[in-house]
Design a protein around this nucleic acid. Structure first.
Length: 232
RNA sequence: CCCAUAUCUAA
């Protein structure tokens, strides 16, 4: 079973979902990891509905665990299934599943993508420990729901709490600047990016160009473009 | 690291 599980994951990672499913179907005695791996494969491929339907099948046979919930929540986030996501959250509480930072972040992401910002805040505020991914999820949640200003405040707050921003943080924050035309904040973020040594990354560079362009500063956009070593 | 898990991306 361990080998089959690994094989499922390997096929899924290389994009052969059908092969992955074939291996999964051929496992005679599936364990919780088998199910979780297959559900994760669908969720990571963006096939939320498929992931959720497999999750439904799994529930008939065995109890999901914390890792399964993470992928099921991601599937809910993809399809915007708020009700299903809330059901899973309730089950997590009922089963007294230990909330770790990954599960809590998955909850924030699900609520954010389903438009339930208040619920996302509730989870975020009650977290025992937050890492850079949790902050990123909350920043994205605000930005995706039209609260770009709050995203920028969160960025400031995470820096005050000595959490080191990463490339995902910067791309999200730059997009928030683009959306609101916040050129001065954008320039400050640009300086942080240089301090962090992220200015050479292509995706970060694209986000910088986009930010400057939308903030009416085509000069700076051009400068960033010219300084990029890798372009796409 | 230990079979599986979360966050960003232009038009």
């Amino acid at each position: 079973v361990f080998i089959s599980n690994s094989l499922v994951r390997l096929y899924a990672k290389s994009g052969s979902l059908h092969d992955a499913r074939q291996v999964f179907d051929d496992i005679s005695v599936r364990n919780v990891v088998s199910w979780t791996t297959m559900i994760t494969a669908y969720a990571q491929a963006g096939l939320g509905e498929t992931a959720l339907s497999l999750y439904g099948q799994m529930e008939l046979e065995m109890d999901p665990n914390a890792v399964t919930f993470v992928s099921a929540l991601k599937a809910c986030a993809i399809v915007g299934a708020l009700d299903k996501g809330k059901k899973i959250h309730n089950k997590i509480i009922q089963d007294a599943v230990v909330l770790d930072v990954v599960l809590e972040t998955a909850l924030i992401d699900m609520y954010g993508k389903c438009g339930s910002v208040a619920e996302a805040w509730s989870v975020f505020n009650q977290m025992s420990s937050r890492n850079v991914v949790s902050w990123n999820a909350m920043i994205a949640c605000c930005a995706q729901n039209g609260n770009e200003e709050v995203s920028l405040e969160l960025f400031q707050q995470m820096r005050e709490e000595d959490v080191e921003p990463d490339m995902v943080t910067y791309v999200s924050v730059l997009n928030a600047c683009s959306g609101t035309g916040a050129l001065s904040v954008g320039k400050f973020v640009h300086s942080c990016i240089i301090s962090g040594g992220y200015e050479l990354d292509c995706i970060v560079g694209n986000a910088l160009i986009d930010m400057y362009a939308k903030c009416q500063s085509s000069e700076c956009a051009r400068q960033v473009f010219d300084s990029m070593l890798v372009r796409d």
